[in-house]
Design a protein around this nucleic acid. Sequence first.
DNA 1: AGTCAAGTCGAACGAGGGTTTGAAACACCC
DNA 2: GGGTGTTTCAAACCCTCGTTCGACTTGACT
Lengths: 221, 221
Amino acid sequence: MTDSLSPPEDAGVDPEREAATKGAVFVAAERLFALEGFQNVSVRDITAAAGVNLASVNYHFGSKDALLFEIFRRRTAELNRERARMLHMASDRHDGRPPVREILAALFEPPLRWSNPAHDRRISVQFIIRARSEGTEAMREVLRTDVSHLRRFADALIAALPSLAAEEIYWRLHFALGMIHNNRFAEFDRLHVLSDGVTRESDVGALLKRMIDFAEAGFLA
Amino acid sequence: MTDSLSPPEDAGVDPEREAATKGAVFVAAERLFALEGFQNVSVRDITAAAGVNLASVNYHFGSKDALLFEIFRRRTAELNRERARMLHMASDRHDGRPPVREILAALFEPPLRWSNPAHDRRISVQFIIRARSEGTEAMREVLRTDVSHLRRFADALIAALPSLAAEEIYWRLHFALGMIHNNRFAEFDRLHVLSDGVTRESDVGALLKRMIDFAEAGFLA
DNA sequence: AGTCAAGTCGAACGAGGGTTTGAAACACCC
DNA sequence: GGGTGTTTCAAACCCTCGTTCGACTTGACT
């Protein structure tokens, strides 16, 4: 959409390869928004962190809200694509009817894999989670109405659990999603305090297994 | 804490019975914050909705943030008190070692009962949920460090599940809490769209049972 | 009636915010 | 090398917001 402005026209999904300033703004904004919250970050904060001029945000993105929305669209698209890919592969492995456990893995693994401390997109995951509660009206409109991606998962779960009413599936899917959305830095901090340091957020592999175990049991109950 | 300012000194927890203006501000602010988000509501919005003068917020509460914090403290205290009461009753019924299901009921039922559309505190629940992601630094400090209330539940669960490592309990408690925090109006809207209107948020009794069933299965897995 | 503290009111202050502007710098092509 | 379109820059604009101020009203007590 905004690519018509950038001369190199890389036509790619890689933000860092765009016009240098635009990419720097994108990256700095995502980081600050994810760490500090949307309303707590000013355009001046972003441009200062990116080392570019104040007017860059409005020139390259139109407005602060449009910048936010563009980050949101790109990151959610990437996440949904990865989830759909995993679900599709699981479907292929099981003649179109994957078991609950693999459906949940397709739902949980992408955001959790990205949450690895060594991973670049750790910040993207926090951004997406934040968008869910602090997003602008435009973002919330998308989140509320665009459920096509979730429908694939709901349908797969309905097929995997034929004895369960569809209404039940929807509610349990809602619960499972809540488990993901709660994976904010602040919540990990609290858990760390509560458990006296026993829980280690860094071991995302173990966390993924725990989440799948918990949710699978809930679905099979 | 702020009672020293109100002449009638009702010494109660009922906000509406304070000095008329202060109570009106409290109620209007809670409602607006819960519905619109903390940063999207100005002091002018609050005082206009309450039908009082602009300066009332600073006169009665000190600052906008202090008003937010006072609402937060009162509502979380009420919620924690109710949860502790239910946990205590369950403990009495089972010689100090209540089963998982009753512990979860003590955790889930208070906020869900208050979420009933007919209930006054429906708005308070949404306020508390919002505080978790959009709260001020002071609120997040409390949420991060004051885990004494959760510890009671963690201990009860550890006692109820002696074969499970404490680390596992903490993680599963984290998941269960995520299920609650996801009960925002916006999330219910999305679920409603996804299920084509099958799911009914209004039936909180059925929702409570579904949540307990799901979480109990996860703990017993 | 007089006094004093508490509360209310309209008005203004000052800071911080997003956005706009117009000129300068740059890159590219004929 | 001139011309053209794009990008960068410093500065300013303009609005909203939280807060404060000083005067006025109210009510209780002496």
